[in-house]
Design a protein around this nucleic acid. Sequence first.
DNA 1: CATCGTTATATTCTTGAGAATATAACGCTA
DNA 2: TAGCGTTATATTCTCAAGAATATAACGATG
Lengths: 130, 130
Amino acid sequence: MATSIRHMLKDELQYVVRGTLWIECEQERFFGPGRVELLQRIDETGSIRKAAAGMGMSYKKAWAMVTALNRQVQRPLVVVKVGGEKGGGSIITDEARELITYHSQLRQRFLAFLEKEANDLKESRDLKPK
Amino acid sequence: MATSIRHMLKDELQYVVRGTLWIECEQERFFGPGRVELLQRIDETGSIRKAAAGMGMSYKKAWAMVTALNRQVQRPLVVVKVGGEKGGGSIITDEARELITYHSQLRQRFLAFLEKEANDLKESRDLKPK
DNA sequence: CATCGTTATATTCTTGAGAATATAACGCTA
DNA sequence: TAGCGTTATATTCTCAAGAATATAACGATG
């Protein structure tokens, strides 16, 4: 039988189980919430610069993310065009879209996990033994 | 049917799903891996100072953690003694021990979740739809 | 060939978190 | 009452991550 800690918490305060989740590639960050948002914004705006600005991120950091992402997979997730019409721009590939979908589903499962834990905590139910 | 992203990953690299998890109280950190270790070390050494030093943490930060912890629950988790024999010292309460146990079990469940996700990723199995 | 807005990269500037330091209070012991 | 090692707290110092800034390359377009 698992431990309940409900009795030591303050009734007037709210406790919640939180967490974050990402995919690592060779000990370094590969894909997490920040990169999802960046890819989505590149998709919407067609520009790394606009995407970065839109989420209050420096261009430098966004660029570093893009190069890291492309380095960590077989085929590029972001295709970049320097110069030309409108000065250039960037688009995301179908594989980037797949990755976003995958992450969204993973996140769903994780949120369900967190929600269950927070609920068990609040309800002071006993959890099944490990 | 869930999305598989295995085909876009590099065969020679290793990908793994990672994450971290904590309990929040009123939008601020309440309990996570760092505080577990601090409590355990206080338990072992009988001293906040020694506990902090042992984990390469400044006394100031450790002290902040202790006061925050005690503020966030009904009854103190760390009982502090100023002056006296050996200058004083600190012990953790039974409730602190319960909290550590609870967190350890929570962590077990989380690790199982991560392991399953990493495995599904690697094996390229299709995951059950949300 | 000048213009444009982007990508690409280097360099300087800020700032805030945490380390380091300093100092006092405390209470038992001898 | 002097000494000890701890708790308790304030202040200064350090440093690195990221912001800000600057500048050049790029390539289509008119």
